[in-house]
């Protein structure tokens, strides 16, 4: 379900941590372990899920809007979430 970014063959894939506020992106894959993948699933973040980045400062957490609710993701987490 959570393929590696290389396997999906899509270009322009970046970690969520590099997306600027206001941009709309789609989740491609989770480059983390079993624990992080289970967590993302529980939060409703699946491959294909659309999200808008609300806030992203280079030194803090990333705030996104998914299906109408705001989610705050830690910096480390956001670096493992691949989007395009």
């Amino acid at each position: 379900m959570f393929r590696n970014a290389e396997e999906t063959g899509q270009s322009n894939i970046r970690p969520l941590s590099l997306i600027k506020a206001g941009e709309n992106v789609k989740l491609i894959s989770i480059a983390g372990g079993q624990q992080l993948q289970a967590r993302m699933l529980a939060l409703g973040l699946l491959p294909g899920t659309s999200m808008e980045v609300l806030k992203n400062r280079s030194d803090g957490p990333v705030i996104i809007i998914v299906k109408g609710s705001r989610l705050v993701l830690g910096r480390g987490m956001s670096q493992d979430i691949m989007v395009c």
Binding site: A42, L43, G44, K67, S69
Partner: peptide, 10 residues
């Protein structure tokens, strides 16, 4: 109810 998909996971 406004976020049923995520809530139904639990």
């Amino acid at each position: 109810a406004t976020n049923i998909e995520r809530n139904l996971y639990l």
